[in-house]
């Protein structure tokens, strides 16, 4: 009984993988960069579209950018004046709430990408809009948080800790802002049918970037806020 269950599961898994492979192939090969030099076949050597490959490479590069900033913060997080360190300043429940908002936006982003693949334009735009809104809410939370810290005396130039904290979270905030601009621009371009090339893939690219920014926040939230200094 258990043996047949296992073999069924394996069969299912194989089917799913095949299906996925088919999807990926079907979608990517024909969704190549419209500005590419070789327009003839839309064929790429890897079978992965140029744009998607480029986005992955860019995100790989971004890992080292955040890696450098996070290392700087970890080096300096204990170098602050007596009463203006992480333990005195952090409001974990509040930041947890805004983090939850940002992570939820990844869900709506997934829904937008899935709607775009179904060519459901209306829902694509709605979910992109909700994603942008949640991203905006997170940013508002960050600005509020920065303001509170500033009122308590933690300026950008106050200490090594403050400089590196504001730089790290500021860089992340800028990334979220750029993501929001991309989302809003995407909605506009979808409405006016100005997306050159595959619309679903364009939405997916914004999605990749957005998920990356979210994942970086998970790391930042864990290292900066949750682990006691």
């Amino acid at each position: 009984m258990s043996e047949s269950l296992i073999s069924d599961t394996v069969k299912d898994a194989v089917e799913i993988v095949k299906d996925h492979h088919h999807d990926v192939h079907d979608h990517d090969v024909h969704g190549g960069d419209d500005h590419s030099g070789d327009h003839g076949g839309h064929h790429t050597s890897l079978g992965l579209s140029n744009t998607k490959l480029a986005m992955w490479l860019f995100l790989g590069s971004e890992c080292l950018l955040f890696g450098g900033l996070i290392s700087t913060y970890m080096l300096y997080r204990n170098r602050h004046s007596e009463n203006l360190g992480p333990d005195q300043l952090w409001d974990i429940p509040f930041t947890s709430a805004t983090s939850f908002v940002l992570l939820t936006s990844s869900l709506t982003m997934v829904l937008a990408v899935s709607a775009a693949k179904r060519k459901d334009l209306r829902n694509t735009k709605i979910y992109l809009g909700v994603t942008a809104l949640l991203g905006g809410l997170f940013l508002a939370g960050q600005i509020y948080e920065f303001t509170v810290f500033y009122r308590e005396g933690l300026g950008f130039t106050t200490s090594l800790f403050s400089s590196s904290f504001f730089t790290l979270t500021g860089f992340h905030g800028v990334h979220v802002s750029i993501g929001i601009i991309m989302l809003v621009a995407m909605i506009g371009m979808l409405s006016k049918e100005k997306v050159s090339g595959d619309e679903a893939e364009a939405v997916e690219m914004v999605g990749l970037y957005w998920h990356f920014v979210d994942i970086v926040w998970i790391i930042i939230f864990t290292l900066v806020y949750l682990i006691p200094a």
Binding site: S61, E62, C63, L64, L65, G67, G68, L69, T72, F156, T157, T158, S159, L160, S162, S163, T167
Partner: peptide
């Protein structure tokens, strides 16, 4: 990206008074 980080830190130090 690694030198990008270094250059940003230097710029913040020189232009905006970071530490």
């Amino acid at each position: 990206p690694v030198i990008t980080v270094a250059l940003f830190l230097l710029m913040f130090q020189r232009s905006f008074g970071a530490q």
